[in-house]
Design a protein around this nucleic acid. Structure first.
Lengths: 145, 145
DNA sequence: TCTTGACCTAAAGTCAAGTTTAGGTTTTAT
DNA sequence: ATAAAACCTAAACTTGACTTTAGGTCAAGA
C-alpha cells in the first residue's frame, strides 16, 4: 500500500493530478484510511493503463467509461477489447502521421543547413532539385508539387 | 491566389481556424483586397509548415516566433535550423513513447481475447505466463514486474 | 505534547486552441 | 437591381485537463 505522495513520486505526477483522476472516477473503489487514499497494486496497474490510454489520445471521460466496464466484470470483456483495438488503430495512424511530419522536418533541417552554407535562401530555391539528397527527393516532389 | 473558403476546403480546416491563425500572427504579410484575405503560394506553404510544427507538438506562440524569424531573413537561419532540429528530437521521442504505448495496447488486446475465450479473467491471471505469446512476453515481464 | 509535514475537500482559476455570435460589408449570380 | 453567398471584425464563449487557493484534519518524530 502506498500513500498519494509515494505514488506521485513513483509516476512523476503532481499529487493534485492523482486527486483529480480520483475525482473524475479513474480510480474507482480506491481504499481510504481515516480519509486518506491508500493506493494498492490495483490502483498502480490502473495508473499504468491510464497513462497508456492517455498517450493513445483517449479523453478522461472515456477512460472513466473503461474503468466502469472493468467493475462490471466479464460481460464487458468485448467492449474493453474493442476499445483497445480502436486505440491500436488510432496510435498506428498517429505514428504514420508523425512519420510524415518527421520527413518534412528532416527536409527543413537539410534546407536550412544549405541556406547557412550558401548564405542565402534565394540561390538555394533554384538549386534545390540539384542539391537535394536522393532520400529527401520524393518528399520534396510530393510536398511542394 | 485563393480565397479563405478555398483554402479551408484545401486543408480541411474551418474558416474560423484560418482567421484565428492570421490573428495570431501565423500568416504575416498576407495580402488583402477590399478587406478580404488573398492566400498565395507563400501562405499555402506557410500552412503546410504550420501543420507540420503543430503535429510536432509546437504551440501557436512558438510558431508565431518562427514566422517572425522567416521575415527577418538570413540572420535567423541558425535559429530556424535549431528549431527544426529540436522538433526532430521531440517527434522521435514521441514516436518511441507511442511504440511503448502500442506494445501495452497489443498486450491488452491479447489479454481480453483470452479472457473472452476463457469466459473469465480469474483463471487467466494465473495462466498468463504459460499462454502469453513469446513476442508479448518481455513486455509483460517489464510492465508488471 | 506539540508542531511540522502530509494529507483532505470544494470551489475557483488557468491555459491553449479554437468556436460562436452579432452585426456589418462585398461579390456574384439571376 | 437585388438577393443570396461569401467574406469581415471584435468580443464572448467553450472545452479539456489540470492547478491553485483557502481552510481544515491527521499522524509521526523531537
Amino acid at each position: 500500500m502506498y500513500t498519494i505522495g509515494q505514488v506521485a513520486e513513483m509516476f512523476q505526477l503532481p499529487i493534485s493530478t492523482l486527486r483529480y483522476y480520483d475525482k473524475e472516477g479513474l480510480l474507482p473503489g480506491i481504499e481510504r484510511k481515516s480519509g486518506r487514499r491508500l493506493f494498492s497494486d490495483v490502483e498502480i496497474e490502473a495508473l499504468h493503463v491510464i497513462e497508456c490510454l492517455k498517450a493513445s489520445g483517449l479523453e478522461i471521460r472515456e477512460i472513466r467509461q473503461f474503468m466502469k466496464w472493468c467493475i462490471e466484470g466479464a460481460e464487458t470483456y468485448g467492449k474493453r477489447k474493442e476499445l483497445f483495438e480502436a486505440r491500436k488503430k488510432a496510435v498506428e495512424e498517429e505514428m504514420t502521421r508523425l512519420q510524415k511530419t518527421l520527413d518534412l522536418i528532416r527536409f527543413k533541417c537539410w534546407y536550412y543547413e544549405q541556406a547557412i552554407k550558401d548564405g542565402t535562401e534565394e540561390k538555394l530555391q533554384a538549386m534545390i532539385p540539384d542539391k537535394l539528397p536522393k532520400e529527401l527527393r520524393e518528399l520534396y516532389d510530393n510536398g511542394h508539387q
